[in-house]
């Protein structure tokens, strides 16, 4: 699938960085992997981590829903509505089990005050993510949503820790 990368077994001891670009997702079961989504503004990142199998996944969603024009070749997880199921299926194929998985989310900030609707989309992304998970009987273990600052998130596949960095702060979820 375009925009989806999976970890391959590399040299022992080396940390492997897998980046989920805007509208993309990354997955790994390699404990040395770190899954990253850089510079989230109104976008939201969802991480899934299975403490037993060690499978980890990170999605970088752009929009809550809406019409998706010609998604062939487009970003695979552009919308939460269309992409959440794709993300969860990929996580299960990677060895993750949804019932015991830990879900964490960050992002959904309000960035450009002048852009009409720009302030809304971050909040709506957060809400769509929570309700999308709820409708599947899943819920977030931790979240860092909203606010006015951009975020970079990193999921450590070895530990399940989600690191959230902004220009001025660092937090671990």
């Amino acid at each position: 699938m375009i925009g989806t990368s999976q970890a391959e077994v590399g040299a022992p001891g080396l940390t492997q960085l897998l980046v989920a670009g805007i509208g993309e997702m990354v997955l790994s079961r390699d404990p040395r992997s770190i899954l990253v989504a850089y510079g989230l503004g109104s976008c939201v990142a969802l991480s899934a981590w299975d403490p037993i199998s060690g499978a980890g996944a990170l999605a970088h969603f752009m929009l809550p829903g809406g019409p998706v024009a010609g998604s062939v070749g487009g970003p695979p997880v552009k919308t939460i509505e269309g992409g959440l199921g794709i993300f969860l299926d990929a996580f299960v194929r990677q060895g993750g089990q949804l019932r015991r998985a830990q879900f964490k989310a960050a992002g959904g900030a309000a960035m450009l005050a002048l852009l009409s609707g720009g302030l809304e989309i971050g909040r709506r992304n957060g809400e769509a993510l929570i309700s999308g998970l709820e409708s599947r009987g899943l819920r977030l273990l931790a979240r860092d949503l909203g606010g006015g600052a951009g975020r970079t998130v990193q999921l450590e596949v070895g530990t399940g820790r989600l690191l959230v960095k902004s220009v001025s702060t660092v937090a671990t979820l």
Binding site: Y38, G39, G41, L63, P75, G118
Partner: peptide, 23 residues
């Protein structure tokens, strides 16, 4: 409007707006 931020965070709001009707 002037903001000091990560480039991706500034751009994504703009890209989200444009991506509503086109990939």
């Amino acid at each position: 409007q002037v903001v000091v931020e990560m480039a991706g965070a500034i751009l994504d709001t703009v890209l989200v707006d444009l991506s509503m009707d086109s990939d």
